[in-house]
């Protein structure tokens, strides 16, 4: 079947089998390998992308389900010379180590900040709980999101909310 989606602002069409996942459509047919395959069953969040502005696990959607919808992947956020503020702050604060979780993390963070520009630390933790990271312990990721939302990363209110 032919699937047409608007991805990162561009309309793209691919011919795929009905059982193709959104993740496979992006990675294998549209040359957008930014979203990663970490578990294939919704546990890790490495495949997180935005569909109509809402964060989803691309491994748990069929390509057919995004027909005519708007998809944003990490590749759509910024480029080498123009980083998205989240990308810039992740870079400045070394908020990743191996980087495998980073595309999904940044997309989840974007989904959070689009809805809630000044999240509390607890809200950030809650918003990222579907994105596993084995390397960083999440600390520098949380700090980066606090920073980019104009809040200094104080630990004072942590987790009590």
């Amino acid at each position: 079947m032919d699937v047409t989606i608007k991805v990162n602002g561009r309309e793209r069409t691919a011919s795929v089998a009905a059982e193709t996942t959104l993740l496979s459509l992006l990675r294998d047919s549209l040359d957008l390998p930014g979203a990663k395959l970490g578990c294939d069953v919704g546990d890790c969040g490495a495949c997180t992308v935005l569909v109509d502005g809402m964060s989803v696990n691309a491994c748990l959607m069929l390509a057919a389900q995004v027909q005519d919808r708007d998809v944003t992947t990490i590749e759509g956020l910024g480029d080498y010379d123009h980083l998205h503020p989240l990308q810039a702050v992740f870079e400045q604060e070394s908020s990743f180590q191996c980087g495998f979780c980073a595309p999904g993390m940044i997309i989840s963070a974007k989904a959070l900040l689009d809805e809630n520009p000044k999240p509390t630390e607890y809200e950030i933790r809650e918003a990222l709980s579907g994105n596993l990271c084995r390397c960083t312990g999440y600390t520098k990721i949380i700090e980066a999101i606090m920073d980019v939302s104009g809040q200094s990363a104080s630990h004072a209110d942590s987790k009590s909310a």
Binding site: K36, E75, L77, Y80, L83, Q87, F90, E91, A102, I106
Partner: peptide
């Protein structure tokens, strides 16, 4: 120094090439 990682740009852009990519 807190030198910026040379691999940071590809990571944040989602452009790091892992084997499966």
């Amino acid at each position: 120094q807190r030198v910026t990682r040379p691999d940071s740009r590809p990571h944040v852009l989602g452009k790091t090439v892992y084997i499966d990519d």
